[in-house]
Design a binder for these strands. Structure first.
Lengths: 343, 343
DNA sequence: CTGTTAGCGCCTTCAA
DNA sequence: TTGAAGGCGCTAACAG
């Protein structure tokens, strides 16, 4: 391995041209006569020459790399988004560095610093700190500092007062969609399970949950709103809690995400509780793995990936820094059956 | 954004030292007196200076970046491994570029080329081409070419005749573990569902499946081996096929991975087939999401991540290029009940 | 312990 | 359309 590196000089010499010409052939951004181009390309091929992207980035001051920080790539919601971002990045010749912050503030900072040093063209944030309703002020100022040095893109989150792009799905609309679907199925009593009011996405959902119910003239019962973390186990716990705390129970439960919904399904199945109608949120692959398959709200994943890259490479005239996308209702087995009107 | 970049020169000037000294302070690899170190650090802090990793890599000929290519990061098995690799990489100051090859040969090649240009210190391959029992010869020679230019690490796969590291879990052992567990639960008739013989991991499992059964004096019925892709839906299809093709049915089914197992569970539940005892493989997060939770075989994920980084940074004297790790049986609900001896 | 000074490999004016 | 040459920001001998 690692002999002496072949450089543009070697190619230039063999092709009997200058390094500038080789550089132009590679970049393809300046005119080169067809003849010399072919000559150069042949030599490149011959030597299996791969231009050093580091040197290129250094001199052109453009790395074609973007950084992506998310708490845990195993989370299907995050990995789905990453996939689309990476796919669109690749289309325009970018690579993506992925960092798992594990929801750890120090790690997050270290990663940001690392990406800054790598001179990534943008840092994309998904989950974690950007979903704090009340982020600590020193973190905000840290981010503000970062924003001066590189583009910042926040997916499904946004911290006020920071100069960055934000790409979000309309959470309120999503809740409205499921609620209306459930209402159509005959439900009148709803619970919203999981998440924390201190998390922006949960807060948005809760707000929409309440106001939609009121708009439809239905009961909003705060005891049917249970907080929890975002994983399967927490969903199980949350359901237990709901049942324990209430005499009168709702018939339909909206999970804050698919994982919580699956947790509820499992718990519901395990005990001999009344069978709830349960829906999820996010339309991750889990919602298909589930039994029954989950009705859920889907994000426009591909569009998210596209927009992220658009704002980074500046393909699109982005009039506002905040892009709001439309969610979509995905109906599956978990809400297939109408409810007895007399329940 | 993007004012003129602060450099080591600016820091040197302000701190009244040479650039070499600043460099030493940053790298911390050469002695610098405490006094000057502190002086320099203060200036660095003052200017919020982040050394340019690209320049550093270029001049030191060491990028501290590794490339990671996998077909689809949404696959929980892949994301679990990525997480551990990335975590260990970060511990030693490395970043990881993640590329989703989508099982597409051209994409794979493009990504490899890209990573080569980035001068990543190693390219890690997980899934995809490295699991072909009979890889096309031109792909092999392509990889061989690559191996001359950079370190190659293959996880859970290995292509003969290529100079690379390989880190694998003993698939045969895993199958033996589940089989013995199932036998203990009273089963005597087993099916192996999913995967293809042309995939190395499936081939290894099938081989162990057959030979273990023979060793235990039990029946190996080839009609109880069904091929399929590796996703949930394929698991459903495979179960249908098994039932359709057989009068006499096994009682226990081993899914080639957790996804296939979940597909079988769903199918089993949906129709009124006899209730099979179903186990998965990989111990992904899906095996907990499943209802019932899946008994499965776990890989030593953390150890895999550790070994990958070890071989890359050369921490460990790796006597062989091939590291085989031990799988672990994870018993969960899906095999909780013993089978009637008279079934 | 610290400073000087070539590079690292490529891009990009500036001239020709 | 092409070549010459300085520079991108940092590292690493080599001297002192």
């Amino acid at each position: 391995m690692d002999k002496k590196e072949i450089t543009i000089y070697d190619i230039a010499k063999k092709a009997e041209v200058s390094t500038a010409t080789v550089s132009r052939v590679i970049a393809g951004n300046y005119p080169v006569s067809k003849k010399t181009r072919e000559k150069v390309l042949k030599v490149i091929e011959l030597y299996d020459f791969h231009p050093n992207a580091l040197a290129r980035s250094l001199s052109s001051n453009k790395a074609n790399v973007i950084g992506f920080i998310t708490p845990d790539i195993r989370n299907p919601f995050f990995s789905q988004i990453f996939l689309e971002v990476e796919r669109h990045a690749h289309k325009v010749g970018y690579s993506v560095m992925l960092c798992n912050s594990e929801n750890n503030r120090d790690l997050e900072s270290k990663y940001i610093r690392m990406l800054l040093e790598q001179r990534t063209e943008a840092i994309v944030l998904l989950g974690g700190l950007i979903n704090d309703v009340n982020p600590e002020s020193d973190r905000v100022s840290e981010l503000n500092q970062i924003a001066k040095k590189t583009k910042l893109v926040m997916i499904n989150g946004k911290i006020k007062g920071i100069d960055c792009f934000s790409i979000q799905t309309d959470e309120g609309k999503g809740i409205e969609l499921v609620l209306d679907h459930l209402i159509e199925q005959g439900h009148t009593k709803f619970g919203l399970i999981g998440g924390f009011k201190s998390i922006t996405t949960t807060a948005a959902k809760l707000y929409a949950f309440k106001s939609t119910l009121e708009k439809r003239g239905l009961l909003f019962n705060p005891n049917w709103v249970i907080s929890s973390h975002f994983d399967i186990e927490s969903g199980q716990e949350a359901l237990k809690k709901l049942v324990k705390n209430n005499e009168d129970l709702p018939t339909a439960l909206i999970g804050i995400n698919d994982m919580v919904a699956i947790g509820m399904l499992k718990e519901n199945f395990k005990t001999n509780l009344p069978p709830f109608t349960i829906v999820g949120y996010d339309n991750t692959q889990l919602s298909i793995a589930s039994n029954p398959e989950l009705t859920t709200v889907g994000h426009p994943y591909e569009e998210i990936g596209e927009k992220v890259i658009d704002v980074i490479v500046g393909n699109e005239i982005v009039s506002t820094d905040e892009i709001i996308l439309e969610p979509k209702l995905i109906i599956r087995e978990s809400t297939l059956h109408k409810v007895d009107l007399k329940d």
